[in-house]
Computed example of a mutant assay.
Amino acid sequence: MYFHINSNKMFFYFMLMFSSLISISSNSWFGCWIGLEINLLSFIPLISNSFNMMSSEASLKYFLTQSIASINFLFTIIMKMIFFKNFEYNNMISIMINSSLLMKMGAVPFHFWFPNVVEGLSWMNNFILMTWQKIAPMILLSYYLNYNYMYIIIILNAIIGAIGGFNQTSLRKLLAFSSINNLGWMIMSILISENLWMFYLILYSLLISMMCFIFNMFNMFYMNQLYNSNMNYSIKFFFLINFLSLGGLPPFIGFFPKWIIINFMLMNNLFIISFILIMMSLIMLFFYIRIIYSSFMFNYMKLKWMKIFIKNKFIYIINFISLISFSGLILSTFFFY
């Protein structure tokens, strides 16, 4: 099984990428709003499926929440034009614009739709939702930041993303709450530098793409499928390395951008936020290690006729990229010393 892209959907994939570029490169708020609307209208046909009730329900939820966020964004733009010379309203308008964009990317406390939508989507659409769909709102967020408000949002994302993963048996929901937790780190990185945010997003997208590809290849959606699968142990080992790297365990590449963010926070006396982010990352690592320990150590009864043979050569590229995860500590050492 692989990510199959229908030729009829290529137009919507093109519009999805093009609309994000419109929002990023626009020199007016209305142009940004138009780009976000085109992005919404191009993503709905990709996730809706008339043969799958969960997919149809997810597309409806996504459409409603994104429409509410777009209406709030447009209303705030008009408010900003009316009260442009009145500086008393600038703080309120910045919070409203930030809240609209946070709802679009599924950040806490506007995350109510995100896990439910993720649960109804395919792995390919989940990858797009967790990575590409965050680019335009994050860059627009950096144009009009309210720092005090953002610090509260960062703490809430870290806490809810970690606590929400408890007792989750669905791999899609687990990755959804992991995405919420990582969103707190992304917002912190964009407060520091856009280059650092881009570096964090590229690494996160690389790890998520490999995990979504393997889950899609083996048709896995729940943890017990991962435990019972008869995949090769070497492939399982390299695949589960990505879990540890996503959690930010020090020897792996996922720790590298988090180390830079932690150093910046400590230099700027943001001790409370750094402590909360680190502690919540430890809770996320607990989820990942629980999955790894169970899949390797538990002695499940496995049927011989369920043996999985991998004929796709792309899996070896994934194994090679997983080996690069070990270079995180070396890169971090050279970077700081």
Rank of each mutant, 00 (worst) to 15 (best):
92 M>A: 10
144 Y>V: 07
127 F>C: 03
137 P>T: 09
119 E>S: 14
92 M>T: 13
94 S>Q: 10
101 L>V: 11
111 H>I: 05
54 M>E: 11
128 I>R: 01
73 F>W: 04
63 F>H: 05
124 M>T: 11
141 L>S: 09
97 I>H: 06
85 K>C: 13
134 K>I: 03
129 L>F: 13
132 W>H: 09
135 I>C: 04
135 I>L: 14
51 F>T: 11
106 G>V: 01
115 P>Q: 06
145 L>N: 11
137 P>S: 12
92 M>F: 13
56 S>N: 15
68 I>A: 14
66 Q>Y: 07
117 V>F: 09
56 S>E: 10
98 N>S: 15
100 S>L: 07
109 P>T: 09
118 V>R: 00
95 I>A: 00
115 P>A: 07
72 N>C: 15
86 N>S: 12
79 M>F: 13
111 H>M: 06
92 M>D: 08
56 S>F: 04
120 G>P: 00
144 Y>S: 12
71 I>M: 14
108 V>D: 00
53 M>F: 14
37 E>D: 09
55 S>T: 10
116 N>A: 14
83 F>I: 05
80 K>W: 12
142 S>F: 06
49 N>I: 04
106 G>C: 07
115 P>S: 09
141 L>C: 08
135 I>T: 08
128 I>Q: 06
150 M>L: 15
139 I>A: 08
95 I>E: 00
107 A>Q: 04
147 Y>N: 14
